[in-house]
């Protein structure tokens, strides 16, 4: 097995075993999605309209919740030093960690969203659009969030500042993601999923470089 895949597998195991943040992020997602109908009322017509927006926002927040530890846990216990000295480049380390985060958070969030969509009364076509948009868009959230996690590595309350610096960068994902669902509901032809795919591809391709630059900066201390 290649070193990159080893690192992904190790981070996945860490995320899933006790103390990892993956389960917590999923629970947070489900809790927010449950709370919103309690706040706005059980009107299914309204819930159908806001379903995509609510689930997308909740998914982004849940993903960010578990992102602040992406590099920090390994930074604090010295593992990141050892990774930086390994034959893997820091860019590859960042890519592996982003991939592991998506596999442990973005992917299960997408699956749970499919169930929650039913609770919001989303028709089958809308649910398909939602699942597709989450599947395509959440890698961008992990990737851009990874930049934020790398930059806030050395800050003690980094978890608080991370969502703030990352949210404007993630706005296009939320816009295209929930837009794809709304356009589907309204029977509009639109390129939202294509825009989302292009953005996601760009984010995943470029983020490891920015994240590695952030990690390098913080290791030099």
């Amino acid at each position: 097995m290649s070193a990159l895949r080893r690192l992904v597998a190790r981070d996945l195991v860490l995320a899933i075993r006790a103390g990892g943040g993956a389960a917590l992020a999923l629970a947070f997602f489900a809790a927010v999605a449950t709370l919103v109908p309690l706040g706005v009322g059980p009107d299914l017509k309204l819930l159908v309209r806001i379903a995509a927006g609510v689930l997308w926002v909740a998914a982004v927040l849940a993903a960010l919740l578990s992102l602040d530890r992406l590099f920090q846990a390994d930074f604090e216990d010295g593992s990141l030093d050892l990774m930086a000295l390994s034959p893997l480049s820091l860019e590859a380390v960042a890519l592996a960690k982003i991939a592991a985060h998506w596999l442990s958070t973005g992917l299960p969030l997408t699956l749970i969203a499919a169930v929650l969509a039913v609770a919001y009364g989303l028709p089958a076509s809308g649910t398909v659009a939602l699942v597709a948009s989450l599947l395509i868009g959440t890698p961008a959230v992990s990737a851009i969030g990874g930049i934020g996690a790398a930059l806030t590595l050395s800050i003690r309350r980094g978890g608080l500042i991370l969502p703030f610096i990352v949210l404007p960068l993630i706005a296009p994902v939320v816009i295209f993601g929930s837009g794809a669902v709304l356009a589907e509901l309204d029977g509009l032809a639109n390129g939202a999923l294509w825009f989302l795919a292009a953005f996601s591809l760009l984010a995943v391709a470029l983020s490891p470089f920015a994240a590695a630059a952030g990690v390098r900066l913080n290791l030099g201390s």
Binding site: P172, I175, G179, A192, F195
Partner: peptide
């Protein structure tokens, strides 16, 4: 990209 997405939105 943000500007484009908001305009699209």
């Amino acid at each position: 990209i943000i500007h484009f997405s908001v305009t699209w939105w």
